[in-house]
Amino acid sequence: MKDGATRDGFADALLDLASDPKLVVLDAGVSDSTRTQKFGDKYPDRFFNMGISEGDMVCTAAGFATTGKVPFAAGFACFLLGRTMDQILVSLAYSNTNVKLVGSHGGLAVGEDGPTAQMIVDLAYTRAMPNMTVIQPADWEEAFQATKALFEHKGPAYLRLGRPSVKGVYDSNHKFKIGKGHILKPGKDLAIFATGIMVQESLTAMETLEKEGIKPTLVNIATIKPLDVELVVEQARGNGAVIIAEDHNRIGGLGDAVTEALMENEVHVPIKKIAVNDVFAETGNAKDLFEKYGLSANHIVQTAKSILKK
């Protein structure tokens, strides 16, 4: 199992895919951070650094896609998504162009750069758009596999990546599939649906919970849209209580996706969200931010206990 940042798993997969001439990569002037520079150094003819103009980049990628190219367009999640909702809606989602948006540095995990750099509404933005697929991998390996799966997938998609290096939870035997959740640890007392870096926080929380006799089921939801409703419903019913964990605002992200799915399928179990509580955070390192804003393993432990009334 390889430790590393999901942004690196993505960039390494691009190198693996490079033999296919359909692949083109665009960046909005932050290729050292998104790691697309690795591709750009090796394949300068198919790497287009569009400068600090995300709207132009997104639509240029759409143009590429109309010719049969498969463009990956990368930038900081904050600006790639925040500045370009209209471009994404019209030139990608509505036009149904085969563009893969790659937003790195998602969530409070970014840390010290503060709220203008901590993207906490991107899952809500993209999830609300028809035709969009939304993916957030948990570790290097899953980011690597998700990138390759997205290359094969037809249609617009958003891949949300993180800045920090995270502990590997998968090895190369993992079989990532778009639209499928994965049970990382089976249990019985409650289902934790986690995405991205919250998979690692949940694993830490589970060590404590297990010591106290609580055995949760941990489900990694890497595909936020389309949601694996079947698995979510089955695990919510089977475990009888639900926690949903994401480094995102509590509105519009995985928490809402899972809650909607459970309500619509008449699964009436206790549900708690671990998410940013509809506030802007502040500067600080990721660990301190996770503690202060309710995303840490400790919060998962406390929430699990309260939901089980233990």
Binding site: F48, G55, S91, S95
Partner: peptide
Amino acid sequence: VEIATGSLGQGLSVGHGIALAARLD
């Protein structure tokens, strides 16, 4: 029709993406 338009300002970027693809191909 190559792409949806209707929100002004996007077409020149889209056209440029196509122009770059023409060169690659």
